[in-house]
Design a protein around this nucleic acid. Structure first.
Lengths: 210, 210, 210, 210
DNA sequence: TATGAATGAGAATTCATTCAT
DNA sequence: GATGAATGAATTCTCATTCAT
């Protein structure tokens, strides 16, 4: 019987809670109740709240960044790599929706509280992007641009899209405006990739991916 | 004697605190101290914490959205309107940096807690954008696109850029990586506008603004 | 134009509030609002809360006790005096309903907080009752009894009746039980007087008042 | 080791405090201190102040009413039942002196705040009394009377007597008036029973209980 | 491991009172 | 006399954390 370990159960519940309410808004009592464990058990497994938070970030960020790096490595051309970068980021964000919320809050805090590990992970992504863009410049397909801005476009757009899925559904109800209800990330990633790549290309007549 | 009104002083201090720490992380005692007023004074002017928060959002969001609408109205062509939309959003966000942080947190919450007024303001922006894009389609300059995605690109990118200014400065120190230190929003807005507009244009040979 | 003086207006409002909520439950802000005066005005006219309370008690208790004494003096026989004592107490309590509530609360506090003046007034009533009962014993119409118990019967019964008028009306609604709705004090005073006097009479064949 | 449970300890302390100072006058800090428990413990066991108050009323009222009902059931004649009703009410009130104080305050509030349970309990008493009086009328021993008035005489008198025991002791000291010092409830109940029954009897020559 | 109970340090809110005009 | 604003001292309640079993 594949009983989920208590420590794991707590970690998952905590991630959801931190995503929904932020670090300060997440309450240990609620966590215990929602996980169906005793409050003291949390402390048996996780030292304290801040450490638990760090565990959550670690468990959340690392595999996402790893997945992106692996995916990008499988492509060879700069253009394909960039497209893969963006699409994988989108896919992973959509698959682990708490990632977007937590990242957004941390960015909102100026990232000051962001545990070192999470910061490191975000820098790995940025570094990867820089390499891809540099490769593109070398290959004469991309113009020179500020990688940071591209990074912001990717992360900002996707995060916002994923984090607002529930909001948009609510608005769609209120307003009867169906267009708000877009909740599939794939096309968003696609269009974002197209937009960014097109703006980077040296030669606009260069063939675009479909 | 132009004494700043206490209510106003509290509102400003509260906005900063909410932006820095989020709703739950902002502490009324700190607010009182930072404003140099008595704790009870806060309650004299603002009923309770949640109401104070709503007041902050109201004071923050409305003028920004108003400014964007006014600016866009002064242009006539869809392309110019869109550029103005993006640049004004960037300019306003940069001028009132708490806006980005607060909006990001709210988005992270799925916007569920977002007071009605703030939601309404964000919808005003979106509605404006829709009109501009529709006009562009009418004028045959723009391809048909999902306005929501464009909206996300604008808001997500700019917000992330503005909100991470302090983070990036910190990172720049740590890493000695000067490129992180970009803190002037204007070029970001410019490049974002160019990127988005270029991807929207029906005819890539269409003349771009410099 | 017979404008009610502010001090007076406050006194009346305060009496109601103290009766409804007790000393601790009465809130100065509410008082100001209900009286339509500024909070600071209360302190202009009444020093502080406890003093205001004393003023209320004084204004409430003294005329009631005076009225009883005057009324009793107008009778000559012990039996008539006692009847008058009870009926006047009932009448006055009904006319000034806040009296019952305030007295009950004070009694509930063990009367420890009861300002001296109010205590004195209650003792005047008790002293009067003692005299009447003693006179009855002298006149051989009354048996010797403990005046305090008679006092309690009178005050306890009438107070309870008057104070519960609103409660009983509520209950009558809920239960559809009309008998609860007795709200005219006169017959209660009458029956109470009859009950007490009958139990005091030496000779049960002694003529009773109708 | 028969350690008194904390929840119970709090309940008892709270009952005393509510009786002495009323709901608004009872302060949670004081309660914690007097019980020798931590402030937060109170909330661990009792949700909030109002709930704690309700728990107190429940624990206080129910057994008293139960005792009265049981005692009355053991008698058969209406006259004996009524005497037992009054005497048991007196006995119970004396045994749990906080009952009188709390009931008086609630009555003073017009009973409006009185938690449903306490109201229900008081109605059980009234209903019992009605049955006894009705039985007496059936048995032709009692005249028809308004049960509510009889109820008020019983409750009002006994409550006042019990609640004022401390006051009277104080007065007795001040005045040197020994007669005030009556603090044994039994004779009061006895006399009250005699008084009420005598006034209810159809035939005054009817044999009274000693 | 798990849990019910406990707790100290806060944190939001209230309230009587005062002050400047 | 009257009033809007301010304030210090509570007061209720919360929350992360610990302890005994």
């Amino acid at each position: 019987m594949a009983k989920i370990k208590t420590a794991e159960k707590i970690l998952m519940g905590a991630t959801r809670l931190f995503a929904q309410h932020g670090y300060d808004g997440a309450i240990m009592d609620d966590l215990a109740e929602q996980c169906g464990v005793n409050k003291a058990s949390i402390y048996y497994h996780h030292k304290d709240k801040i450490t638990l938070y760090e565990h959550c970030l670690e468990a959340l960020f690392t595999p996402i960044v790893d997945a992106i790096i692996v995916a990008v490595e499988q492509e060879s051309g700069a253009q394909d790599k960039l497209a893969m970068h963006i699409n994988t980021f989108a896919k992973e964000s959509a698959a682990k929706p708490y990632f977007a919320a937590i990242l957004m809050r941390e960015m909102a805090s100026g990232g000051t509280n962001l545990p070192v590990l999470a910061r490191t992970q975000m820098q790995r992504i940025l570094r990867l992007l820089k390499q891809v863009l540099a490769q593109g410049v070398d290959e004469k397909v991309f113009k020179k641009t500020e990688p940071l801005i591209v990074h912001f476009m990717i992360v900002g757009t996707i995060n916002l899209f994923v984090a607002t899925i529930p909001l948009r559904n609510a608005l769609a109800m209120e307003e009867g405006c169906q267009s708000l209800k877009v909740s599939n990330v794939k096309p968003v990633g696609k269009q974002l990739a197209k937009t960014i790549i097109r703006s980077l290309l040296t030669d606009v007549t260069h063939p675009m991916p479909p």
